[in-house]
Amino acid sequence: MAMGTLITAAAVLAGINVLLLIPLLGVWVRNYATFRTGLVAGLVAFALAMLVENAVALYFFFSMQSFYAGDPHVQQAVLVLRALQFVAIAGLSYTTLR
């Protein structure tokens, strides 16, 4: 069964989130090695959690397509949540990497 347009867009956003989180994690791990502060440790933990969450989401998008296929409202909600997560991670990426 082919993925619907909304779920395909959500999967693409999850993939982009993973790609944005990898350099963020690298910067924050490097910063933690230098500063050893609780704030930076929290950022590392955040990046790891979000990276795992998005990777697991990608797995489910491709392995359990029928889970999302039944209800267009669920598909729309999943897409909106992925989009909000992308905005948050993109904002963090912008401020961290500039």
Rank of each mutant, 00 (worst) to 15 (best):
L20V: 11
H73A: 14
V80S: 01
F62S: 09
S93I: 00
L25V: 00
I22N: 10
Q75V: 14
I16F: 04
L13P: 13
L21N: 05
Q76L: 15
A90K: 05
F61R: 05
G15R: 04
H73N: 12
M64K: 14
I7N: 03
M50H: 12
A69R: 03
L20F: 15
L24G: 03
I7C: 04
I16R: 07
R30Y: 11
V78Q: 11
G15Q: 09
N54S: 10
Y59H: 08
G91P: 00
G26A: 08
A55Q: 05
Q65P: 04
A33D: 15
L39R: 03
G26Q: 07
V29N: 11
A88S: 10
F61V: 09
A49Q: 06
D71A: 09
V74I: 14
I89Y: 02
Q76E: 14
S63E: 09
L58A: 02
T37D: 03
V78W: 04
A69Y: 01
V52E: 10
F60H: 10
A55M: 08
I7T: 08
Y68E: 11
R82E: 15
G70D: 06
T37Q: 02
R82M: 13
Y68I: 11
T34L: 14
L43D: 03
A55C: 08
L24I: 02
A55R: 03
I7D: 02
S93H: 00
F62P: 11
F60T: 04
S93L: 00
T5P: 14
A14Y: 00
M50R: 11
G4Q: 08
Q75A: 13
Y32C: 05
F62W: 15
L25I: 01
L24M: 06
L58D: 02
Q76H: 11
I7S: 05
D71C: 08
V87H: 14
A9D: 12
L21P: 04
Q85T: 15
F60P: 07
I22C: 10
V12P: 08
V56S: 10
V44M: 03
A83K: 06
R82L: 08
N31A: 12
G4T: 12
A90C: 08
A45P: 06
F61Q: 07
G26T: 12
L58M: 06
L19S: 10
V44N: 05
G70M: 04
A45N: 09
G38P: 10
R30H: 10
V18L: 09
V44R: 03
L58E: 04
L84P: 07
V87I: 15
N31S: 13
L25T: 04
I16W: 05
M64L: 11
M50V: 12
F67E: 15
G4A: 05
F61E: 07
G42A: 03
G4D: 10
V78T: 12
L39S: 00
L51F: 05
V44L: 07
V27D: 09
G42P: 09
G26D: 09
A14S: 06
A88T: 07
F35C: 01
W28P: 08
V56T: 09
L79Q: 01
V44I: 09
P23Q: 00
A88M: 09
R30T: 10
